[in-house]
Amino acid sequence: MKQTTWMLTCLGMLAFSADALSLSPEQERLNRVQAVQQKYPDIKFEDYVYGALAFSPDAKAQYENMMAFPPFESEIDKGRQLWETPFNNGKRYADCFPGGGRNVAGNYPYYDETMKKVVTFEMALNQCRANNGAAPYKQADMNTMGLLTAYARTLSDGMLMNIKVKGSGALAAFESGRHFFYQRRGQLNFSCASCHVDHVGEILRTEYLSMLPGQTTHWPAFRGGDYALFTLQRRYSACNQLVRAVPMEIGGEEYNNLEYFHSYLSNGLPLKSSVFRK
């Protein structure tokens, strides 16, 4: 009995020390950036925002051409209408954010000490609706929330990602997102990191694998031949499905924590919203 207790204590201490050894958010970010720099010294840090395009000058040139006159411009305009239409009380989304909503998206997600949870930009938009007597949008609905962010986030184009992790609650949320990123899931047994850390810049059949730093800067995106609108969390859901894992809820705690970790790893990189991606 005594021996068992002793062994359990030891195991507990081991678990504790392993936890304490996990890297600080900033060390984790630096490690991931440096690993990409070592493997691809010719790719500039600020070009990490282009993800897979950063590895292919041809694909990048095609992207630049398309972005000169985006074929999905009218969709962004629908989002602008949503953003500019006043609530019943006469107030607007712009009244909910400092600077009328300019240069704010790079501060999201943040950890809210009062609510004890991660708050994404989409949650802030819904909070704005609630404060002005409007029902919240479903975060998975691309025709409402998706379009709204497709415009609202463009107001922060050029802002540098600026995620903060301070305090034990914030750190726990970051760690939860970190765990999600490195945990294998689905029948195919991939973690996010299996591709986007271990095989960055390599080619999966025909597609380059993007690097983790920069991945959260270009959302939402209009993807593929039909320019389907994807928010970042819709992309998470699609990725999970591809590895044959049942996706988590878009806007739920798991994906919010993942987005928190994921966005921190893009700190210092400029945002650009409503872009084309394959």
């Binding site: 095989h199 390599e202 080619i203 999966l204 059949r205 025909t206």
Partner: peptide, 19 residues
């Protein structure tokens, strides 16, 4: 297999992978 493995001796195998 072709998502991650090339097959240099197999003309029918179409892939650019290098994983």
């Amino acid at each position: 297999c072709l998502a991650c493995h090339a097959m240099p001796g197999e003309p029918k195998a179409v892939t650019n992978t290098n994983i």
